[in-house]
Amino acid sequence: MPAAPRRLSPQTLEVLTALEGGAGDWLYGLEIAAVTGLKSGSLYPILARLADHGLLEDRWVESDRPGRPRRHAYRLTGAGRAALRAARLDPAAFKLGAAPA
C-alpha cells in the first residue's frame, strides 16, 4: 500500500543522516539509536516508513553466536541518499513519498 507524502520530521532526518554516516555499511538498530539518541518506539516506525518508501534497504544477518536471533541491518539506497540531499537543500518543502521534481 503506497503511503501518502508526508513532511520529513527532524527525527527522520537524523536517522537518514546516521545511515549516511555508515558510509554504505549495514547498521543495526542499536547503532542507529546510539547515534541519533532515538528510543526504539520512535526509531522503528521511522525505519519501517523509510523502507516502505524505498529509502533504505534491510536484510537479516545471522548472529555469529549460536542461539542468538538474527539481526536486522539497514543501509541507505540511492533513493535514500537523493532524498537526504533534497531534504537538506529545502527541509520545509521536502516530502517523503512525493514524486521527485
Binding site: 542499536l30 526504539s40 522503528y44 548472529s63 542468538r68 536471533p69 538474527r70 536486522h72
Partner: peptide, 8 residues
C-alpha cells in the same frame, strides 16, 4: 520489525 526490536 518487532523481531528486529527483539534481536537488538
Amino acid at each position: 520489525w518487532i523481531e528486529a526490536v527483539r534481536a537488538e
